[in-house]
Design a protein around this nucleic acid. Sequence first.
DNA 1: ACGGTCTTCAACAGATATGTTGACGAGGTC
DNA 2: GACCTCGTCAACATATCTGTTGAAGACCGT
Lengths: 230, 230
Amino acid sequence: MADEPQQPEDAADSGIGRRRAAARSGGRADYEERRAAIVAAAATLFKRQGYARTTFADIAREVGSDRASLYYYVGGKDELLDAVVTDVVRANTAAAEAVRDGDGTAPEKLRELIVGTMRAFHEHYPMLYVYLQENLAHAPDDRQAWAQDMRAVNRRWAGAIEDVVREGLEAGTLRSAVPARVLANGIMGMVNWTNRWYDPERTSVDAEEIGTTYADVLLSGLAAPAAVAS
Amino acid sequence: MADEPQQPEDAADSGIGRRRAAARSGGRADYEERRAAIVAAAATLFKRQGYARTTFADIAREVGSDRASLYYYVGGKDELLDAVVTDVVRANTAAAEAVRDGDGTAPEKLRELIVGTMRAFHEHYPMLYVYLQENLAHAPDDRQAWAQDMRAVNRRWAGAIEDVVREGLEAGTLRSAVPARVLANGIMGMVNWTNRWYDPERTSVDAEEIGTTYADVLLSGLAAPAAVAS
DNA sequence: ACGGTCTTCAACAGATATGTTGACGAGGTC
DNA sequence: GACCTCGTCAACATATCTGTTGAAGACCGT
């Protein structure tokens, strides 16, 4: 039932694969530099056109090279997405968990999570946005393993926020009429949706300022003091 | 410089195209029914796997038919996306504009926009989510015209929300320290992000209730009354 | 200039997707 | 039962993308 015609394995099987592996383990400075340039170009294009629509030819053009040459530096599109996304997402998740486990009241933590995430979006632009944009729920067929792994990381991230919200509801520092899950998703929505419109080069408002605004609105409410009666 | 090898035009050029056009203008009841079933299947799959990853073969399997048969009912993937998305998005945009132009204070309108949108998400599931998920900023190459059109509609939708926010800031019914654009995007983020987690079959909370929750939180603030001092 | 390693690229092979054809059969109509 | 329209589908044609090869070129120290 299972026929595997092309199985690249994870080892350096092909000629070019062997040469690539050799070069990578060599750790030559300009080799790594060029590889990083390719990854950066890929990140830009993934953000601009989406992963599915970006071809290796596009990336080659962007870095001013030949498509075939890229294989000397990277194993394929999958590996590129990995390189663009994995580390930075892991780091971000860890940061969120650190905030959750740290000191402070739930509202303070929530503010820190929101502002911190926006800061990270800016600092690592466009990596984290590539991640948000490429809906991991749409499993990339083969890469089931990686997708599952990333989904787990994502759950941890969402979990950290949800935990803080729940903590606040239980401690009474947040209005308790709202379901924690819904609220956590709403907060993530506000922040994550910035991937659709925020661009450090174009958007006049600063990322951190956006975070502050959202934190203010969420925590203090949007209605003018006089109208709170509503 | 421009070589157009395959130009399907918009007319019924091919044999199957002619037959399709004939059948469609015939307006036979069961023909339209079958076509609707195909569109519905496409919507489900687009939502589940994303547009790019969904193939005509997938859709054929879903409706229990042959891939080639689908061409008797639809011209191609593009036309399917159109059928899934265009009408319902247009209607939704018009509804948002109607709220903006209607009576009431800005906070009231905002609440209606939020709850109304969530209601529409539920009622037209999964069409509007397909639209949100398929980032129109990632131009589908050829379909430039359609993409631009949809982007214009999108701008109108966003514009309606932004207008209401601005109205509230100017009238003093909303806290005026926040940039209208950022705020409008934040609200849209909260609501639109539900496409990542809300599923009428699975999510225990009702769509309308989610809308109400978000409206409450945004308008009245999240911090418990005692802590508002912050 | 020589020998070695590092890097590029034209050309190929294969997979997967789309859209088209043309013929065939099911069903109703007279 | 001959006829005709409606709908289906095996087979084909074409396009696009990925990954690989093998040889040639660039660059460096000696």
